[in-house]
């Protein structure tokens, strides 16, 4: 009945109520334990597509894909979950998935850029809300310091501290914005994807990449995207072969 309901909702494109979402979530968990990974993935994906996603659902979705041996979607969903939540189980299963990736990027830079690491270590929503609050509090303290000469020192100090906090939070938000704009990352989906030396079917095949490999998308042209590996190796591959995070 609940599956029928979920199917109906998926057809209508509506959103699940919390009860419906919970039912479908548990049903998908049961399918996972029955080793019906396709059904489990289908249920979790419906939740995501109908506004009931989140790190928990994404984690289960990635884990189900991993159990089914679908490396590309597994890494993709677990990476998405990790971006929403720093958690040990997400990191652990992501590490398992990465050990199964065929490709080894030789000579890859050990550390990601500072802003990328900063973005990964922080939550965008927290930083953005914090920045918003800090800037308005800074203004309030400044006005109070101006209008209340008797407590001018205390309010001025508070305003200064809040200004510094705003600067730090602003840097974090900027890191997220920079990563979102400049650092488009993706995960290779098909078992094998040919990487060409140009955005054309007639171009020469430079090398091949395989499911689950994380790449950076640096350019797009027609049906092709230019990808860059951690060691600087670049090439063009079919757009649909790389799912963006």
């Amino acid at each position: 009945m609940s599956l029928f309901l979920a199917l109906l909702l998926s057809q209508s494109g509506g959103y699940y109520t919390p009860q419906e979402a919970q039912q479908l979530f548990l049903k998908s968990n049961d399918a996972f334990h029955a080793k019906d990974y396709a059904a489990a993935c289908d249920g979790y994906r419906k939740l995501v597509e109908h506004g009931a996603g989140g790190p928990d659902v994404l984690y289960n979705l990635g884990t189900a894909h991993l159990a089914a041996g679908e490396l590309g979607p597994a890494v993709l969903e677990l990476e998405r979950a990790r971006r929403l939540q720093a958690a040990e189980d997400i990191d652990a299963n992501l590490a398992v998935a990465r050990t199964k990736v065929i490709d080894e990027v030789v000579g890859a830079t050990a550390q990601a850029p500072f802003f990328q690491r900063l973005a990964l270590a922080t939550r965008e929503r927290t930083l953005s809300l914090g920045l918003l609050a800090a800037t308005w509090l800074t203004l309030a303290c400044t006005l109070l310091a101006w209008r209340l000469p008797s407590r001018r020192g205390a309010f001025a100090a508070a305003a200064l501290v809040l200004l510094l906090v705003s600067g730090g939070l602003g840097l974090g938000v900027f890191a997220h914005a920079w990563v979102a704009q400049e650092l488009v990352e993706g995960v290779v989906q098909p078992a094998t994807a040919k990487v060409l030396d140009g955005p054309s079917e007639a171009a020469h095949v430079s090398f091949e990449v395989h499911a689950g490999l994380s790449v950076r998308v640096v350019e797009e042209s027609g049906n092709f995207v230019k990808i860059r590996l951690g060691n600087g190796l670049e090439g063009w591959t079919q757009k649909e072969g790389v799912a963006r995070l």
Partner: peptide, 11 residues
Amino acid sequence: LKPLRYAANFT
């Protein structure tokens, strides 16, 4: 693999 999560916060 780490086990599935049994409670979800749907966001």
